[in-house]
Amino acid sequence: MEELFKDFSIGLFVWQTVLFITLIFLLKKYAWGPILSSIEDREQGIKDALDSAQSAREEMQALSADNQKVLQEAKVERDTILKEAREMKESIINDARSAASVEADKVIESAREQIQNEKMAAITDLKNQVASLSIDIAEKVLKSELSDQQKQKDFVAAALKDADLN
C-alpha cells in the first residue's frame, strides 16, 4: 500500500480525471443522448404497433360479436313473426270453422223447422183430403147401398138388430 501511494502520479490522475469527465460530457451530447432516445423511440414505436394491432384485433372481435348479435336478434324476430303468423292462421281457421258450423246449424235448424211446417201442412192437407174423400166415399157407398127400398129396410133392420136395447 505504501508503495502504491509513493508511486501515485498526480499528473496521470489529473489527465485521467479531466479526460474522463470530458469524455462523459462529449459522449452524453454526441452518443448516449441520441442513442438512448432513438432506442426509446423505437421501443415506443414497437409498443404502439403492438397496441394498435391488439386494439384492431379487439375491434374485429367486437365487430364479429356485434354481427352475431344482430343475426341472433333477426333470427329471434323471424321466429316470433312466424309464430304469430301461425297463431293468427290458426285463430282465423278456428274462427271460420266455428262461424261456419254456427251458420250451418242455423240453416239446418231452419230447414228442419220448414220441413216440420211443410210436413204439418202436408199432413193437415192430407187429413182434410182423406176426410173429404172418406165422406165422398161414404156418401157414394151409402147412395149405392141404399138405392132401393128393400135394402133400406134390411139396413135399418140390421142396424136395429145391432143396436140391442138393453
Binding site: W15, Q16, L19, F20, T22, L23, L26, L27, Y30, A31, W32, G33, P34, I35, S38
Partner: peptide, 17 residues
C-alpha cells in the same frame, strides 16, 4: 486513455448517427 476516448467517441457517435 486519449486514444480510448477518441475510439469511444468515434464508435458511439457513429452508432448514434
Amino acid at each position: 486513455i486519449i486514444l480510448m476516448c477518441a475510439f469511444l467517441l468515434i464508435s458511439f457517435s457513429k452508432l448514434a448517427r
